[in-house]
């Protein structure tokens, strides 16, 4: 099939994982009924542990170059995020921050999403009038609040995707190495 470009390395890593689980089962089963002390059964330990060691080393050696050369399709990622009303939570949070009780905000947002689906729109393409038909709390700043970048970058709770948190995570990882 000439149109296909298969992710062979990733598939092999996924496939080989089962083999390593098998090695662990081999070892656990080998040991479970052995009376003390040495028994010849224990000679079976080597092929299992050797295989596990060889496999993980091989996978690690191929994984890093695969990642390093991966092409990230940023625009496609963004486009995928822009579909599916991924910012609905942020729309509800916008209302809540303006004093609307959370349950009401959730319901209003649900109705807006239903309206969008019925009219082939997204939260970004709704007009302010359409927003205000559901709640007069909406004003021009809703568009900034539901902008995907705002949604991701303002999630600044500890461990979240905001830049400050990403930097914190990077620092923690690098220091641990």
């Amino acid at each position: 099939m000439p149109q296909k470009k298969n992710p062979d390395v990733a598939e092999l890593v996924r496939g080989k994982t089962g083999r390593v689980y098998g090695d662990l089962m081999t070892l656990l089963s080998m040991m479970k009924s052995l009376p003390l002390a040495y028994n010849k059964d224990m000679q079976e330990d080597k092929e299992a542990i050797f295989d596990a060691v060889d496999t993980v080393k091989l996978c690690l050696k191929t994984f890093a170059p695969m990642l390093g050369t991966a092409k990230v399709l940023k625009d496609n990622m963004y486009a995928a995020a822009a579909k599916g009303f991924i910012n609905a939570t942020d729309c509800a949070d916008y209302l809540t921050k303006k004093g609307v009780p959370f349950r009401d905000a959730y319901k209003i947002t649900g109705e807006l999403v239903a309206y969008c689906i019925a009219h082939g729109k997204t939260l970004e393409t709704l007009s302010l009038e359409e927003y205000r038909k559901k709640s007069d709390v909406f004003s021009e700043d809703i568009y900034n609040a539901i902008d995907l970048k705002t949604c991701a970058f303002t999630r600044n709770s500890l461990g979240g995707p905001a830049k400050e948190q990403t930097e914190m995570q990077l620092k923690a990882l690098r220091e641990a190495l």
Partner: peptide, 12 residues
């Protein structure tokens, strides 16, 4: 699709 994140967050 649930909420927008960054690719960095996913990788980390």
């Amino acid at each position: 699709r649930a909420q927008p994140i960054t690719f960095a967050q996913h990788l980390l």
